[in-house]
Nucleic acid binder design. Structure first.
Length: 424
DNA sequence: TCCTCCCGCCAATCA
DNA sequence: TGATTGGCGGGAGGA
């Protein structure tokens, strides 16, 4: 199989170039860049470091490290922008890492979360198949069904004794009792049904060390985190609270901290997918996350997901999607290969809040529009169709128009499926 | 100062 | 046995 099924097209960047890097220039795009030219990378032979030459601009070395440009959420946005095209099927992890300018380790984080919400599927070592956002409703539906099986009473205040308990294992590293082997199998069923190439059908139900490792996987934690939203009455939840519910009370501070770290990773990815949004808890200053899919009570089995192309509120802290590559200086050590490719930074901060899904316009007006659109979404799923046809931002950058088109296409496809499901 | 979360070490697992 | 996968926590950036 080919390394990736992304076809070369006139708008597609060269395989060895940072993808969509031009989009990262959003704040000050050329009036009409004609025709689209992918950024070129040149190697500074004397210095040994790579020097990015973007869009014909001057080479620039050593701009300041900024963790905003390296966030998992932004990486996820870029990953989706790169692969959410109708003609993409296979994804090679090496290829993705190379194209996005990050280490493989980060790609694993992304694909584990994306896989757990049905956006892609692991086919083999190093190889994933892109499903797209159309796969999300089914994955969420299955998650919800499983969660409801595990939680007899919807709205149970805690998952501690059910699925969450199955992952509250951090202090049991040396205990591999098989008392709940079946529950483990059940709990792992989704991820393993996705990735069953290596599963042995006759595997003993007892908890193996490999199972134990899987229990703590980012993918499984993602699913359990999503289940919290799918099964509980709460509108928002803080990561501390989520960690408590997933771990159970009374766990060591260390375990809790580790779990919260992972939840931050997951939340950032889910935020960039517009499945959740960062918000503020009403009764405290602590940040919390709100589910945007709202597949909860009184909605029967339906699972709705309100992501692109509708615009969501901006995260309070981060601006995802401002940079379609993550080429940048690394913190601490300098990465000789990626260093200085990061000349894709945006201008001043007030400019770069606009992600790839943001239409041109003022931030305030957009936020106002976003809120209206969000409310509109929540009123009725039927409105989405109109929204898709009417909400068509005009990007100055042709690459963005293409990108938005892909989202509209993916969304339309998913919405058609949803209507068909509802009708049947 | 505390929250957030990037980064990469290294152990587990796979081929 | 080398390659792949990913848990984990240190510690730096940011508010």
């Amino acid at each position: 199989m080919a390394a990736t099924a992304i076809p070369s097209s006139s708008a597609a960047p060269a395989a060895d170039a940072p993808v969509h890097a031009e989009v990262a220039q959003l704040p000050a795009p050329p009036p009409r860049p004609a025709p689209y030219q992918p950024p070129r990378l040149a190697v500074d032979g004397a210095g040994g470091g790579a020097v990015a030459v973007v869009g014909g601009g001057k080479p620039c070395r050593h701009h300041a490290y900024s963790r905003k440009q390296k966030s998992l959420g932004l990486l996820c946005t870029n990953f989706v922008a790169l692969y959410d095209r109708g003609d993409v099927e296979a994804i090679g992890l090496d290829d993705a890492a190379k194209r996005l300018g990050v280490e493989r380790r980060r790609i694993y984080d992304i694909v584990n979360v994306l896989e757990s919400v049905g956006i892609l599927v692991r086919r083999a070592k190093n190889r994933y198949t892109w499903i797209g956002f159309g796969g999300v409703p089914a994955a969420l539906r299955e998650l919800k069904e499983r969660a409801l099986r595990e939680v007899p009473v919807v709205g149970s205040p805690s998952l501690d004794e059910t699925s969450a308990a199955n992952v509250s294992d951090d202090e049991d590293d040396d205990k591999f009792d098989d008392a709940d082997g079946d529950a483990e199998s059940e709990k792992l069923s989704l991820s393993q049904s996705i990735d069953n190439s290596s599963d042995k059908p006759d595997a003993a139900p007892c908890k193996l060390r490999s199972d134990h490792r899987k229990e703590k996987s980012l993918g499984l934690l993602t699913q359990n985190f999503v289940k919290l939203f799918l099964t509980m009455e709460i509108e928002t939840i803080s990561l501390d609270e989520a960690a408590k519910r997933l771990l159970g009370e009374g766990h060591a501070e260390n375990n809790m901290r580790t779990k919260v770290r992972r939840l931050y990773d997951i939340a950032n990815v889910l935020s960039s997918l517009k499945l959740i949004e960062k918000t503020q808890q009403a009764d405290s200053r602590k940040p919390a996350f709100r589910w945007l899919g709202q597949p909860k009570k009184n909605e029967g089995d339906s699972v709705t997901v309100a992501f692109a192309p509708t615009k969501m509120t901006l995260p309070s802290k981060r601006a995802f999607g401002t940079d379609l590559t993550n080429f940048d200086n690394k913190r601490g050590k300098l990465d000789s290969t990626m260093e200085n490719r990061g000349n894709l930074t945006l201008g001043n901060r007030s400019d770069f809040v606009y992600g790839p899904f943001h239409p041109a316009g003022t931030r305030a007006r957009k936020e106002h529009d976003n809120r209206k659109i969000l409310e509109k979404d929540r009123k009725s799923i039927q409105d989405w169709e109109n929204l898709a046809s009417s909400f068509r931002p005009q990007y100055q950058n042709p690459a963005l128009n293409d990108l938005f088109g892909h989202y509209v296409e993916a969304w339309s496809s998913w919405y058609s499926d949803l209507k068909r499901d509802a009708a049947s």
